[in-house]
Design a binder for these strands. Sequence first.
DNA 1: CAGTGGTCTAGACCACACT
DNA 2: GTGTGGTCTAGACCACTGC
Lengths: 259, 259
Amino acid sequence: MATQAPSFDESQIGDASAAPAFSPLYQQIKSLILQSLQAGHWKPGDLIPSEIELAARFRVSQGTVRKAIDELAAEHLVVRRQGRGTFVATHAEQHVQFRFLRLLPDHGDLGSEGPAQRSIIDCKRQRAPADVARTLGLRTGDAVLQVRRVLSFQGVPTILEDLWLPGSAFKGLTAERLASHQGAMYALFETEFGVRMVRADEKLRAVAADEQAAERLQVTPGAPLLSVERVAYTYQDAPMELRRGLYRTDTHHYRNSLS
Amino acid sequence: MATQAPSFDESQIGDASAAPAFSPLYQQIKSLILQSLQAGHWKPGDLIPSEIELAARFRVSQGTVRKAIDELAAEHLVVRRQGRGTFVATHAEQHVQFRFLRLLPDHGDLGSEGPAQRSIIDCKRQRAPADVARTLGLRTGDAVLQVRRVLSFQGVPTILEDLWLPGSAFKGLTAERLASHQGAMYALFETEFGVRMVRADEKLRAVAADEQAAERLQVTPGAPLLSVERVAYTYQDAPMELRRGLYRTDTHHYRNSLS
DNA sequence: CAGTGGTCTAGACCACACT
DNA sequence: GTGTGGTCTAGACCACTGC
């Protein structure tokens, strides 16, 4: 915050003073707010300071702060509520769930089938295989947590997935803790480990069920399944989760919007 | 443009005068620009009037026009180019292609394998089946165009798809015209029929290849394929295309970003 | 050089939420 | 009423493009 802080040097128009940064003022403000989010200074669900206060704090106009927050809101990192203030976004809201769970029942509305039944099959610490280490930005052999679980809808097992998490960030995560938690996993990550997932990339494929998957999902071996490999990122595009899922798509489908 | 035009009645602050509309000024401006786009007044690739001119035309400040255009740019309906102006977005740019074609080779960069080879299998007019009519907002039995084609990458047939288009909007579309056209289909729709696809919803499933698909895609019957059903929309969310595709995902994958 | 979009400021008023 | 975000204006200067 020292070198390129917009609070110093310039008189009116932000020229960002000296050497390092050379970006618009509002980008610098955005960056500063982002750092506060990342540092956990303001936690998910928290009310952040008002635009007027931030403007005073950073010595810029309210309009500049507004533009910075506009972008953060567009990226779903904060949520604006007229008359109330601006809040740090959280996975604890129903509405947010569907951004990361794209599997919907073929018939019926959003969430008409009620919440998924989660069952943890396994949760163990181990050394990271090479491919997992690479995508998580770790070294091969570093400690990782592997979780395997099944999600069922209306009693029908529909999703089988494996998760890999960096061991360092998720100390103390156990099958019991996962099982006792109602609701989305990312919400637990926020409240228990201060890790907020912000963005994810997925690669989808159609594959044939192997013996093990067929048994877990109660389909015949060789049945087509949707393979979903996800890398989820926290602030600053730091990868924090690798997830490999197999979805039954006989009564559900994966929805996507292109725009 | 008469009833709720922002050009009249109010003196400074936009209160949108009389009865019908009750939305922010910039939304009304956005709406007016949208109408010009939809009417084909400004065509894909065209330079639209400058912010200053639009502000004068609509009797609002430049900042209000700017906010309207900002939203249009965020929706990819226009593209801003500093120093040059604002242009109507078009599918004729390489960069835009990848927004609607999500299948990528597992290895190699974007487009490293070169453009797809397109081969039209069939292109015929017929009466719309009930399900097609429903999703396209037509009546059962209305004229529709059905196109069937295969896309190959480096000689390997990878995508088999059926398209349905409203007959009324695509008069004169023939297999020859499709075949003679190099490049993306949506670019042809723009230049030849004045139809610009703006947004699309997709439903994905894993399915087993039937006899016909297996033959066309050179896989064994029963092999897993990714089924992609797309409804594409033009301005104002009017559905203009139903597309059902089967993708081979043994050397390619469907990529998606969640945010 | 003139023209365009991009950034920044300052000040006004509106719509909404809480108290 | 007070404080918040939301809208709108007016004017300044910057950065880029093309003549």
